[in-house]
Amino acid sequence: MNKFIPFAIFCAISLALYVGLSLNPSNIPSELINDPVPEFALTEVGSDTASFSSETLATEEDVIIMNFFASWCAPCYVEHPFLMELKNRGYKIYGVAYKDRARNITRFLEEQGNPYTQVGADENGRVGIEFGVYGMPETYIIKNGIIKYKHIGPILEMQFEDEFIPILESAR
């Protein structure tokens, strides 16, 4: 038996671990990329009818941004001003309020401003589960009802330039 084999195996493992350290374990792509959005129908905040649904997204002509948020989520407050700016730049943003009460959502939007074309109230979190959401906030890029991209966590300006714009451009 060559006595150097254990040492060689260990070196290979160390190298892999070293490379592994530079990877970001929270960077997990969505299983749903290039799939149609899961079917859903949500009541719009401030109304009683199910007016915001997967159908809305499928018939939407523009490439749109869909943002899961909640008034109880601190990072969402950080992200919100940037969403307002995106709205001003002319992007169309749909919102889903995840596990939140209508009263709180309304107050949140009154205080922080409303960047959303429509806001669906996902009170029991079912739609969030269908989308595979596991942290607040999360943002999707959707074209003709097809999911193109998923971003976890608040969107920072630099990330938007680097990650979102190429996809938004190519999807157009």
Partner: peptide, 13 residues
């Protein structure tokens, strides 16, 4: 680990 495995490789005989 690497040090001890190297030592092993050199001394095990």
């Amino acid at each position: 680990i690497g040090g001890s495995l190297l030592l092993f490789a050199m001394r095990a005989d």
